[in-house]
C-alpha cells in the first residue's frame, strides 16, 4: 500500500464530508439536514487540522458548529418544519435551482483551474498557529481585517435596530 496515514485520514474525512453534504440536501427532515451540515463542518475542521491550521479549525467549530448552527437548529425547531407542513415546491423551481447551482459550480471550477495552490511544505507546521496568524492579520491584512470588523458592527447595529422596533410597537 502506497498510502500514508495522512492520505488515509484525508480519504476518510473527504468521504464523510461528501456523504454528509449530500445528506444536507437530500434529507426530508430539516433537523436531519442541519445535523448533516454540522457533521460536514466537523469534517471540514478536520481538513483544516490536516493543513496545520488548528486555530482555524477550532474557530470554525466554535463559530459555525457552536453558534450559527445552534441558531439554525433553534429556528427550525421552533418553526417545527416537517415534510407535511412544508409547501410543495413547483417543479420549475427545482430546475431553476439545479441550473443556478450548476452555474455556480462552473464558475468555481473555472476559478479553481486558474488558481495555483501552493503546495505545503512538510516543515510548515507553525504556519497555522495563532501567533503567526495574528501577526499576519495585524500587519499584512490589517485593512481588510478592520473593514470586516465594521461589517460586524453594522450587523450588530442592524440587530439592535430590529430589536428596538419590536419593543416600541408592543
Amino acid at each position: 500500500m502506497g498510502m500514508s496515514l495522512q492520505q488515509i485520514v484525508f480519504g476518510v474525512l473527504s468521504i464523510i464530508s461528501i456523504i454528509s453534504a449530500l445528506g444536507v440536501i437530500l434529507s426530508k427532515n430539516p433537523v436531519t439536514s442541519v445535523l448533516c451540515l454540522i457533521v460536514t463542518f466537523f469534517t471540514i475542521a478536520g481538513h483544516y487540522i490536516m493543513l496545520n491550521a488548528q486555530f482555524l479549525a477550532v474557530v470554525h467549530i466554535i463559530v459555525y458548529a457552536g453558534a450559527i448552527m445552534v441558531l439554525f437548529l433553534f429556528v427550525i425547531m421552533l418553526m417545527n418544519l416537517n415534510a407535511e407542513i412544508e409547501p410543495q415546491k413547483r417543479s420549475w423551481l427545482k430546475y431553476a435551482g439545479a441550473i443556478s447551482g450548476g452555474a455556480l459550480l462552473l464558475v468555481l471550477l473555472a476559478a479553481l483551474r486558474e488558481a495555483s495552490v501552493s503546495s505545503l511544505q512538510p516543515g510548515a507546521v507553525e504556519i497555522g498557529l495563532i501567533s503567526n496568524l495574528g501577526k499576519t492579520l495585524f500587519s499584512t491584512y490589517v485593512l481588510p481585517f478592520e473593514v470586516s470588523s465594521i461589517l460586524f458592527l453594522s450587523a450588530m447595529v442592524g440587530a439592535v435596530v430590529i430589536g428596538k422596533k419590536e419593543g416600541h410597537e408592543s
Binding site: 488548528q54 467549530i61 466554535i62 458548529a65 457552536g66 445552534v70 437548529l73
Partner: peptide
Amino acid sequence: INIGILYIFGVVSLGVYGIM
C-alpha cells in the same frame, strides 16, 4: 495543544446540542 482554551470553548459550545 497550543490552543487549549479555544479547544475547550469549541467543545463547550457543542454541549448545547445534547440538550437541544
